[in-house]
Simulated assay, not measured.
Amino acid sequence: MLNVFDIVKLTKINHKEIDSNQIVVTDGNGKPNAVLTELLNDVVSNMQLFVNMTEIYAVDDLLQALSAHTPLPADVLDEYEKILREPIYEINFVPKRGQVEVVVGEG
């Protein structure tokens, strides 16, 4: 089963890496999860600033790179790991908004 990291790593919009404002976390009923979305947006923002994703192939690689190149404390990296390892049940592309909805809970 794919997880959130896989989606962030593999998804491109107009041939560019996904931007933090282009990804939304929802539950199985399509209801946005603001807390998880904000956390994932923070992860993606830090990835874009501090990490070359062409050299990253797993969650552990990403966490090591963020640990080495940012002053993020261990508890923040732990939260990043939780969202990145979250299993994906569906992906919904919203072309009009240029967004990807990642469904992390069953409906």
Rank of each mutant, 00 (worst) to 15 (best):
L2W: 04
N3Q: 12
N3F: 02
V4Y: 11
V4N: 01
F5S: 02
D6P: 02
K9Q: 07
K12V: 10
K12D: 09
K12Y: 13
I13W: 02
H15F: 14
H15T: 15
K16Q: 10
I18L: 12
I18M: 07
D19F: 13
S20L: 12
N21L: 08
I23G: 04
V24N: 03
V24Y: 02
V25W: 08
T26G: 05
T26H: 10
G28D: 02
G28K: 13
G28T: 13
N29E: 04
G30V: 07
G30S: 06
K31S: 02
K31G: 00
K31A: 04
P32W: 06
N33Q: 12
A34K: 07
A34V: 12
V35L: 14
V35H: 13
V35I: 15
L40H: 12
N41Q: 15
D42K: 11
V43N: 08
V44A: 10
M47Q: 09
Q48C: 07
Q48M: 13
L49R: 15
F50H: 14
F50I: 10
F50W: 14
V51Y: 04
N52M: 08
N52V: 12
M53K: 07
M53E: 07
T54Q: 12
T54P: 01
I56C: 04
Y57L: 08
Y57F: 13
V59N: 05
D61S: 03
D61E: 02
L63A: 11
A65R: 04
L66A: 12
L66M: 11
H69L: 04
T70I: 07
T70G: 05
L72T: 06
L72P: 03
L72K: 14
L72I: 10
P73Y: 00
A74W: 07
A74H: 11
L77R: 13
D78V: 03
D78H: 03
E79D: 13
Y80V: 05
E81Y: 12
E81Q: 15
E81R: 15
K82N: 09
I83K: 01
I83Q: 02
I83M: 04
I83D: 03
L84G: 03
L84K: 05
L84W: 08
R85M: 14
E86P: 01
E86G: 03
E86L: 14
P87S: 05
Y89S: 01
Y89F: 05
I91H: 10
I91F: 08
I91M: 11
N92D: 09
F93V: 06
V94H: 08
P95Q: 03
P95W: 00
R97Q: 06
G98I: 00
Q99M: 09
Q99C: 04
V100L: 06
V100C: 08
V100D: 00
E101A: 10
V103R: 05
V104R: 09
G105A: 14
E106N: 09
E106R: 10
G107E: 01
